[in-house]
């Protein structure tokens, strides 16, 4: 599904190397988690994969289903099936949430040469999906993320994921700013989307999200590299001992 090889990335505007050779493969149907201390490069990885400005790939590759991601525009990556759930979802005053989602769904369909979704079909689907995430009609009407609480913003990300039905989902610290109940709701939303044909990359600081979204593989990232890979037990080890042990063990 997602294949990252020897990925080296620096900041465009300063001579600072952030990723120093990341190798990672996420298979269809699997959930991979990346954990790591602040500044290890986790969020940078998610931004580079989704195509945000400000980063320069100096070496390596990233492909989605064999297609070169790094060569695509941001919107092409999305249409190819990549989805990033933002750590800080952006507020867009003046654009209604519903309008935004319908524009996005139909833009992706159009880009893939599929037929656009009718308003009636779209309404039916979004109502059902929104209900599962406890998103009410009022939230759908409001401008995108404007006046949403932290939990509402994250649920809105998962709603977008559910509507866009991507092949590869990257969740960037989706647990940040969530209380236990909100985290459970978000995790249920994600679990409902787990599917044989879909891969997940869950980026998080803490093990607690992984209690709800059970990963198949856990990677530890530090200093721009993946330094250790293991099963779910690796997350528990981090929870108990912190990153220092693993980092010194690898060093």
């Amino acid at each position: 599904m997602l294949e990252i090889k020897n990925l080296h990335v620096k900041l465009e505007e300063e001579d600072k190397q952030i990723l120093k050779g990341v190798d990672l493969e996420v298979e269809a149907g699997k959930v991979h988690a990346i954990m790591g201390p602040n500044g290890s490069g986790k969020s940078t990885l998610s931004y580079v994969l989704s195509g945000r400005d400000g980063y320069e790939v100096t070496d390596g590759s990233a492909t989605l289903l064999g297609e070169d991601l790094l060569d695509m525009d941001v919107e092409e990556r999305a249409a190819a099936g990549l989805f990033l759930a933002f750590q800080y979802p952006v507020e867009i005053p003046g654009v209604g949430n519903m309008t935004f989602l319908r524009t996005a769904v139909n833009a992706q369909r159009k880009a893939r040469g599929e037929e656009e979704m009718s308003s009636a079909d779209f309404l039916k689907v979004i109502r059902a999906r929104a209900k599962e995430l406890k998103i009410d009609a009022e939230m759908l009407k409001r401008p995108v993320n404007v006046g949403f609480s932290g939990g509402e913003k994250k649920r809105n990300e998962i709603l977008q994921m559910a509507m866009l039905e991507p092949k590869m989902c990257i969740l960037d610290e989706t647990d940040s700013g969530l209380d236990v109940d909100a985290m459970k709701l978000v995790a249920d939303g994600v679990n409902a989307l787990r599917d044989e044909g879909r891969g997940f990359l869950v980026i998080t600081h803490y093990q607690r999200l992984l209690d709800h979204i059970k990963p198949d593989v856990v990677h530890i990232m530090a200093n721009g590299r993946i330094i250790k890979t293991g099963g779910p037990e690796l997350a528990l080890e981090v929870e108990q001992n912190g990153y220092a042990d693993i980092m010194s063990e690898v060093a």
Partner: peptide, 28 residues
């Protein structure tokens, strides 16, 4: 707004359409 633009594009909205949406939002 570059952040808004990236967010819309990351959801698959082409740059031109995204700029138009944000422009219409500006005059809203």
């Amino acid at each position: 707004d570059e952040d808004g633009l990236f967010y819309l594009r990351a959801r698959g909205v082409p740059r031109g359409t995204a700029e138009d949406l944000l422009t219409i939002a500006f005059i809203a």
